[in-house]
């Protein structure tokens, strides 16, 4: 168990080091998310944008997230590093969790920066801590299947299109739950209304973390 964790952290650490040096993923994803928010402003009447703010937030985060996920395994493919990883004496789930935690951290960082900007731009009421919980649960959901499909898409002939085609339909429950839950929070709804949506996301997260880690081996082997 300790060895398992140590190796997951080794993979995470090398991804963080590379990211600190290039800021490839976080910066491009962040700029993309902001662009989505700005474009939505033009698509709706500025006065009514407050009503769709939750929708805008989650559209921005999912589209930007899929962009970051697609980078994740492109870096591994570069110098045959994925093969290097597979040669290591570890099972597939170690590689899966290492990459997943990295993707999760990058997406969370983007979300942490995007949230306050959205609040300011859309002139929304003050921040509520429940939002953090929603963002964390939804992002785990995205990262769980996203990491799996990112590894799958990078091996196909059309990686740019394959990842979103697989990712979006599968995560629809998370998107629905996240939009609904953050809507309830922003309208000052009670915790009891909220809990069902948190449960949907938590169930999705647990189920797909387990299943993805089990089937990841079949994606990377030949």
């Amino acid at each position: 168990m300790k060895k398992f964790l140590g190796k997951v952290l080794a993979i995470l650490w090398k991804d963080i080091l590379a990211e600190l040096r290039t800021r490839d993923i976080v910066v491009s994803v962040l700029v993309f998310a902001l662009l989505v928010i700005v474009i939505f402003n033009f698509a709706f009447e500025p006065e009514r944008v407050g009503l769709v703010a939750c929708g805008v937030l989650w559209v921005a985060l999912t589209f930007a997230g899929v962009l970051g996920l697609s980078r994740s395994f492109v870096l591994e493919k570069d110098k045959g590093c994925l093969e290097g990883l597979m040669l290591c004496p570890v099972d597939g789930d170690v590689i899966y969790f290492g990459k997943m935690v990295g993707n999760l951290s990058f997406m969370l960082i983007v979300a942490i920066i995007v949230l306050p900007i959205l609040f300011i731009l859309f002139n929304l009421p003050i921040f509520r801590p429940e939002l953090v919980l929603i963002v964390v649960l939804a992002t785990i959901g995205f990262a769980s299947v996203g990491t799996l499909f990112s590894a799958l898409a990078v091996n196909t002939k059309a990686r740019e299109i394959m990842l979103p085609m697989l990712f979006f339909p599968i995560v629809t429950p998370v998107i629905i739950a996240a939009v609904k839950a953050s809507g309830i929070v922003l309208q000052g709804g009670s915790l009891s209304n909220l809990s069902i949506w948190l449960q949907v996301m938590a169930a999705f997260d647990i189920i797909f973390l387990v299943v993805s880690s089990l089937v990841f081996q079949f994606i990377i082997e030949e």
């Binding site: 080794a10 590379a18 590093c81 290591c88 004496p89």
Partner: peptide, 25 residues
């Protein structure tokens, strides 16, 4: 050893070796 290096471009030589060293205990 193959014609691909399996090395991460943005990491230093030391960081690459440390990473693989940790993976192999």
């Amino acid at each position: 050893v193959s014609h691909q290096t399996f090395l991460y471009d943005n990491l230093t030589a030391l960081e690459n070796l440390k990473f693989y060293g940790r993976m192999y205990d």
